[in-house]
Computed example of a mutant assay.
Amino acid sequence: MPAELADWPKLPPLPEGVFDGREAFESSLRLALDAAAAQGWREIVLSDPDFSDWPLGDRSTVAALQAWSATGRSCVVLAKNFDVFARHHARFVQWRQTWSHIIECRICNAASAPAVPSAIWTPTWFLQRIDIDKGRGVCGRDRERRGGLRELLDECLRQGRPGFPASTLGL
């Protein structure tokens, strides 16, 4: 276990099954990012139309991402647009600038593209909001559901393009 994770708190198991409500979504999201750090997940995909209601600007979220980030890790962030990041997720934006070499941000808003799902995908666990407005969804390790989600994400990524640069260079 890497030194920065030695003091990471013992985590409850990742949730399985249906979740309902914004608090349950945020709790599952935070727990997943803590697990990513504690367990050294190699790959994470974060996906949402705009991430407006994700707690990506919270100190605890950025601390978990900081503990997770290491050599050999990769994160894809997929959105229809990244307009809210500068206003609502300033800590994440700053963290991303430091770790831009492991974070790929992609925009998927082509007319022919599928709707961008609100989800977290990893090779061993997933979370997907089915009803974004009410914060309802499903999460777990189910291989079939995780595989279906990955296929949807892959199609969005295939039709997407790079977006949300880590920095803007001017002349």
Rank of each mutant, 00 (worst) to 15 (best):
E151G: 00
P165H: 06
I107P: 01
A79S: 13
V116H: 04
D58L: 08
G135S: 04
G140C: 06
M1L: 09
R146L: 14
Q97F: 07
P13R: 12
F164Q: 14
R22V: 08
V116R: 11
C108T: 14
P55S: 03
E16A: 02
S28Y: 02
P165N: 06
T98G: 01
Q39W: 14
Q97H: 05
S167M: 12
K134I: 03
A35R: 15
S74K: 15
P123S: 05
A63C: 01
I107A: 05
T168Y: 10
S100W: 13
R136V: 04
V138T: 08
G160R: 15
R146W: 01
S27F: 04
V76W: 10
A79M: 05
S69F: 03
A24C: 01
L56F: 10
G40M: 06
S118A: 15
D53T: 06
F51I: 08
Q66A: 12
A119Q: 07
R96Q: 13
R96A: 09
P2D: 12
G148M: 09
P114T: 12
A70H: 09
A166I: 11
G21D: 13
P123V: 08
S27L: 09
D83P: 00
T61A: 11
L46R: 06
C156L: 13
S27T: 15
R96P: 04
I44H: 07
R143H: 10
E23C: 00
L78C: 03
A36V: 08
Q66V: 00
R42S: 12
D154R: 10
L169P: 03
R145T: 07
L149S: 06
L14A: 09
H101L: 04
V116A: 02
S60K: 11
A119G: 04
A115L: 11
Q94T: 15
W68S: 01
L11I: 11
L152N: 05
F51L: 09
G135F: 03
G170K: 15
R146E: 02
D133C: 02
G148H: 13
W121V: 08
R91V: 03
S47Q: 03
W68F: 03
V84Y: 13
S118G: 04
G72M: 09
L31I: 08
C75L: 15
L171G: 06
E26W: 10
R30V: 07
I132V: 15
G137R: 12
E43F: 01
P123Q: 13
F82H: 03
V62D: 05
F51C: 05
P55W: 06
S69Q: 08
D34V: 01
L56H: 07
L78H: 05
D34M: 07
P114H: 05
